[in-house]
Amino acid sequence: MTPSNNRSLLVIVRHSPYGSSLARTSLEVALSSATFEQAVALLFMGDGVLHLLPDQDSSGIEARNIAKLIASFPLYELDNLYVDEAALSQYGLALSDLPQNLQAVDDEAMHELLCQHDHCLGF
């Protein structure tokens, strides 16, 4: 494997989950990268934190359930999940409301994530 195949990827999810296909695409990119054993981390920023709400039920809108998909991330060994602390409080959410293994980050730490990864893909 050449080094270029092993570069780390940060996927940034900034849009709400059901309003467009962007959200779904961003998660698919993360999952595909993880499937091919690329180092990948996921940051839920701004409106993107709405992906993490429990109790989602998309059965009435013919869309797949994003919360369920996110629940499968540990099976893909997609374990580096970060969430925008300020956006959480903006939406009145606490880390304890959300799926486990998420790490809350402030603006400083998010900038650090941008710098730490070889590639950033924003959605």
């Binding site: 710098c115 990864h117 070889d118 590639h119 950033c120 924003g122």
Partner: peptide, 8 residues
């Protein structure tokens, strides 16, 4: 720049 981030 080593890292590039696109906002849109």
């Amino acid at each position: 720049c080593p890292t590039q981030q696109a906002w849109y």
